[in-house]
């Protein structure tokens, strides 16, 4: 039987889509809008650092960021493939999308380990 790698990419896409759907809107509202606009006071640097260094927080942040990248990679690959009918560039698109997400994942791991 022909084997396919699609189940693997799809599972990352699905996990990333779920995490992003649950956590990103509120994170964006707080960090990207409420605090910069002064609706909320920015928490002290030391507190943020301490919180982010907690092993559970590091794991959460790593999964959220990395899986969000893979979620994008899978969806965007098919959007290019169908939306612009670029099926002849299938391999190149896949390498750029999943490769980009992998680079992002390594960067996230490196950043969080050295936090």
């Amino acid at each position: 039987m022909k084997t396919t790698i699609e189940p693997f990419w799809w599972s990352l896409f699905g996990a990333g889509g779920t995490l992003a759907a649950l956590f990103i809107p509120i994170t964006l509202i707080i960090n990207g809008l409420a605090i910069p606009l002064g609706w909320l006071d920015a928490p002290a640097y030391e507190n943020v650092l301490q919180l982010a260094r907690h092993p559970l927080a590091r794991t959460y942040l790593f999964l959220l960021i990395s899986l969000s990248f893979y979620h994008w990679a899978h969806r965007f690959r098919f959007t290019l493939y169908d939306g612009l009918q670029l099926k002849h560039l299938n391999l190149l698109i896949a390498v750029i999308c999943y490769g980009g997400a992998t680079v992002g994942t390594i960067a996230a791991g490196y950043t969080l380990i050295n936090l």
Partner: peptide, 15 residues
């Protein structure tokens, strides 16, 4: 049936 369906032309083509 899996040999036909669990392929790039089968379910994995669906978006």
């Amino acid at each position: 049936r899996n040999a036909i369906l669990n392929t790039d032309e089968g379910i994995w083509q669906c978006t």
